[in-house]
Design a protein around this nucleic acid. Structure first.
Lengths: 243, 243
DNA sequence: TAATAATTTGACTAATAGTCAATAATAATG
DNA sequence: CATTATTATTGACTATTAGTCAAATTATTA
């Protein structure tokens, strides 16, 4: 039926409107002052209608993060398809992740919040499952490149180390760093003037530590970095003013 | 005056009672359902009295974290004084950090929460400053050992890398991993069966990557680990059932 | 002991989450 | 096209909790 199709479309449109409104509001006023009345007011729908879509504000955040995670996945995916060695592709993914976060800083504000289970569990199980799925997919992209590197003999892991554990290390290192960058912590005072450079160096040190070739010292990484930005993320690099 | 001394003592005691109550409650019901009425009820003081101590629940959390950070600092400090090479002392600190978190799991629930600035900024500036100070002190302990390692020639950092940045890498790697461990994320499904082992391996890979001697392969680390637990954290290792 | 000062209380206001009966809009039917 | 049935939308309402403050209580001083 034509009508019901239109209805669906309208519903989806409103869903997007609500999420976008919440996203802006969150960036503006923060989690605590983010409230349903305000969202209703701005979207020009009543509170009841908002509750038709989401059971609570935490559920809006979860949906927001599902979208964010998927978007992040496209950056990781593009990085992973960079024309180069697996290690270079890994670097391309790291740059992609950084670009994604630069262009979507609000992602972290809410991601962090939802890492707390008392907040996350307010959302209904379906939403929670979807978010978990999206996050697992992203980690899968990283693990896959690592697996190829092992297969092609670029790195030989000790038998007590799995590819997933190394991905986990990359992931946690970068994730932890961005968490600290996006909290109000004064990194400057800790002697970290350029946390992104530190992350870059630490990722490479980790991979060097596992003996993944080509080692950091064996390549002109500044040049590789430029090439990645130019070939994979030309538009995003310009937007984020990264070079 | 004797009386006012007693008053001070009573005030401090009540402060502790409030914090301990909040800590238990937080672990029990989570941030969202943690409320001042409940804290007043359990401590058997009125709400007004609770507000005499703290201006909001977030401020209680901040004070909780200041205490946690200081306690964590004692674990790091003890690790750093282990009788061994700087790299072994670094490993001792990593084990200390792990033990601290095992014994105080509630630390992370609230730490994570307060990483979000909209929550953290609800606390008054004095509390925020104190927390920042405590966190910086901890990072200082790690950096100091690293500095000594450089001084003693155990590791020679490239000139574009500072000791603080390496500490930052260790910190973020461990921190990020614990964040993910303590969120409801299904690490098992990601192929991480033993995240703590992964953290341990990744820390060593990072240090290997920076060329910090003795390298992982040059030492029997299982043996060193046992020695650290026995000499530095005998009581805590037993409590946490770690070996 | 009476006067004064400090502390503690809980009733009160304000803000917001979440519900649901009433209303409005849309679709189906004859 | 008019009428009925269905579906979507509304916002007034209740419940919960944060945070305040005048009154009551307790402690200290003269």
């Amino acid at each position: 039926m034509a009508t019901s199709e239109r209805k669906k479309r309208e519903y989806a449109q409103r869903q997007t409107l609500i999420i976008d409104t919440a996203r802006k509001l969150l960036l503006d006023v923060g989690y605590i002052d983010l409230n349903m009345d305000r969202i209703a007011e701005i979207t020009e729908y009543s509170k009841g209608t908002i509750y038709q879509h989401f059971s609570c504000k935490e559920e809006i955040l979860v949906e927001m993060l599902i979208q964010s995670a998927k978007k992040c996945g496209t950056f990781l995916g593009r990085g992973s398809r960079f024309q180069g060695t697996p290690r270079e592709r890994m670097a391309a993914m790291a740059l992609g992740y950084d670009l994604f976060i630069r262009l979507n800083p609000d992602h972290f504000k809410s991601k962090l919040l939802l890492q707390n289970e008392s907040i996350r569990r307010k959302a209904s199980p379906v939403f929670q499952k979807n978010l978990e799925k999206a996050e697992q997919d992203n980690m899968g992209i990283v693990s896959e490149v690592l697996r190829e590197a092992v297969e092609q003999g670029h790195v030989q892991l000790r038998k007590d180390v799995t590819t997933e554990e190394v991905s986990f290390g990359l992931w946690t290192g970068a994730f932890g760093a961005y968490v600290l960058m996006f909290s109000e912590m004064n990194l400057q005072a800790l002697g970290i003037s350029d946390p992104r450079k530190a992350v870059w160096n630490n990722i490479h040190a980790l991979l060097d530590g596992f003996g993944w070739h080509p080692l950091f010292q064996d390549l002109n990484w500044d040049q590789t970095k430029s090439r990645i930005l130019k070939e994979v993320f030309p538009h995003e690099a310009k937007l984020a003013q990264v070079s």
